[in-house]
Amino acid sequence: MVVRRLFRDSAHLVRPALVLVACMALFLVVRSAIIPKAFGQYGHYRPGALDLVRQHPIAFAGQDTCVMCHDDQATVRAAGKHAHVACEACHGPLAQHADDPAAHVPKLPDVADLCRRCHEKDAAKPRNFPQVATAEHSSGMACNTCHQPHNPHL
């Protein structure tokens, strides 16, 4: 028979073929053991990485959270030019305060440094943005002597 003669002529190839098959099987077993199950679900990466990144803790609670309790300050601010400046832009990250207000009491920001960051006169700033040369403008007085930070208009 043709098949039998073919087999007899190529008998010396059987053992290397078995070794090859064994190696391929070993490769497949190891591969399936070390590659995470869901790898490639969305692309050439581990989808679990998305959850890993999402687990990072939040530091800035966000505008809406602040206003839930501090609606009085929010009302004052809404009437002035700082209406669209978020609370934490000046007061710093306060997610911990939002979680437990008693345990994390925020400090008041340092007005001398704070106002200048935005309002110091600078040629690179947009022309319509209110700027002052603080040294000439207030002669060393703190900004909040005259301006109320939540609604700075005099």
């Binding site: 990144v53 999402r54 530091a59 800035f60 966000g62 505008q63 669209h84 934490e88 832009a89 943005f129």
Partner: peptide, 23 residues
């Protein structure tokens, strides 16, 4: 930058956008 992936997937905006005083 992760575009604050941990924030935007929970309905918040990024930390930089949240704190930009001029929008």
């Amino acid at each position: 930058c992760t575009l604050c992936y941990h924030r935007i997937t929970k309905g918040l905006t990024t930390a930089c956008c949240e704190n930009c005083p001029t929008g």
